[in-house]
Design a protein around this nucleic acid. Structure first.
Lengths: 280, 280
DNA sequence: TTTGTTATTATCGTGGTGTTAATATCATTA
DNA sequence: TAATGATATTAACACCACGATAATAACAAA
């Protein structure tokens, strides 16, 4: 940095054009660059119902790894970034390729770069968060249908643990990833048995989602075109993991929504008015 | 992805140990990975004073580029990431190497990856933000003292422009970077003449700083050990670019600070009580 | 002692929020 | 037809945070 080599001396008299023409790839070591995508949705819990209405829960999409390393363990969808795309582009592409999930909100989260986070080689990953509405996803499974699964998330703040509940199809199994057992409370183990540092990434995403929920309109990425205020409130409650007061909640979201002249049908009780996200 | 090659078939029967032993570097193209650091401080404006007290302004640290590309233009401090460190480590190291600035708060901002952002080759940069107190910095200039400079920032929200005012030493020149002219209002040109996409990065940093100022204790990274409430308020006003009400401000920061039994001296008016950041 | 200047705190109105409770509207059933 | 069960919607009220202004305190200098 202090000694000027022959090349640096030459640079002094070159124009930028000339410099770029003679420039060769840098001699610094380069990492592999990947993206990992934390896909969230909020879906109804298939209740073991007495007649209670279905509440909702926050879910994250995972893929079972077919190859080494971490073979057979669950991991976030993701893959290598191409030179012709941004990391955001790569996140969208990988998501579509690996899970069939298209569109929806997607945003960059944080870049994970701990040296040994991938046992193979130097891999840096730009983590992303994606939100999609649970109604319009059909997991058309790029490789194998049984390899892609939704998991219920209940993450405690400021914890390196995430509690993941296997939520497969209609049955709602209670299990810790990689350590399934018969019913009861799930035993939480380090990383939940997730591949790489993906448990840490999910925790980061949950924190971000909770934070932005309160001062953005992020929640509407999880809603259909038309929705009731109760449904909207249930989405907030599922993410924040706490009950909210009806009246206060309605006041708070009042200027984010527009009312329609449609109502729910055949409910056995007073029908709910349908609302839509306010565009402005 | 669908065709299983010989190598993939072999993987099926290998243990993870065996796999890692035979693993060779991936065949995907790899980007160069850099960090760029937006260093903020808040310092007194050397007023052309009638007897007005010095107000404060937000400043960012820039380095004049000695080599191609963007030779002679101003740029953020930064450099290549090593395989043995995280991007955060690299940000701290480069900051110390290039500007002599040590310590202070530092956090990751956003990763910029637009394919042609560097004219040489594929370079992805993890942008960071750093906050330091203006009192304890001595820019001991890694290379050349005149190459490192503080610039006053006044960034309008949601604009791709940043207005930078050259704030050099005692004199407060009014100029747009790369397009200096004699006094008056600075003419704002695209990117302010900054290298690469660094204007965009600075805008991103200012947005983040303003946002987190209101719900974190980030401001104290810009304060000395002991400070008056007026000084603290001036820091907030300089960053948010708007006046705040005294009483309301004091109520808001009341539970972030501890009072001391010290006061300012020889002021010609009622002395101010000194406060410190509350640790808990 | 008066004046100029800044620090600190009191006060008051307003608006948002937590909380409870009343009212509305449907399907179902006696 | 009227009562019941269930959920939706909104009214009402207390309380607290905040915007905004004004009063008081403490120092140096004239």
């Amino acid at each position: 940095m202090s000694n000027l080599g022959k090349r640096e001396l030459l640079e002094q008299e070159m124009s930028e054009q000339e410099f770029l023409a003679q420039y060769k790839a840098v001699d610094y070591p380069r990492p592999s660059l990947t993206v990992d995508v934390v896909v969230f949705t909020v879906a109804d819990i298939p209740k073991n119902n007495y007649r209670k209405l279905p509440e909702k829960e926050l879910r994250v999409l995972l893929i079972k790894r077919g190859g080494h390393p971490f073979k057979g363990q669950w991991a976030l969808p993701g893959g290598f970034v191409h030179p012709s795309e941004t990391v955001g582009d790569a996140a969208r592409r990988e998501l579509l390729e690996e899970t069939g999930v298209d569109g929806g909100h997607i945003e960059q989260l944080y870049t994970f770069s701990t040296p040994k986070r991938d046992p193979r080689t130097w891999v840096v990953s730009a983590a992303h968060m994606s939100l999609i509405e649970s109604g319009q996803l059909t997991l058309k499974a790029g490789s194998d249908a049984s390899e892609v699964e939704w998991f219920s998330v209940t993450a405690e703040e400021s914890s390196k643990f995430i509690r993941l509940l296997l939520s497969s199809g209609d049955t709602h199994l209670s299990a810790t990833i990689g350590h399934e057992h018969s019913g009861g409370e799930p035993k939480v183990i380090e990383n939940n048995g997730l591949a790489f540092d993906h448990a840490k990434i999910i925790a980061c995403a949950v924190r971000r989602l909770r934070g932005k929920l309160e001062y953005t309109d992020l929640a509407f990425s999880l809603m259909p075109e038309r929705f009731t205020l109760t449904e909207l409130q249930q989405v907030y409650e599922a993410i924040l993991q706490k009950p909210l007061y009806k009246a206060a909640f309605r006041r708070k979201v009042a200027d984010l929504i527009d009312e329609t002249d449609e109502y729910t049908q055949n409910a056995g009780h007073r029908p709910s008015q349908l609302f839509s996200k306010r565009e402005d």
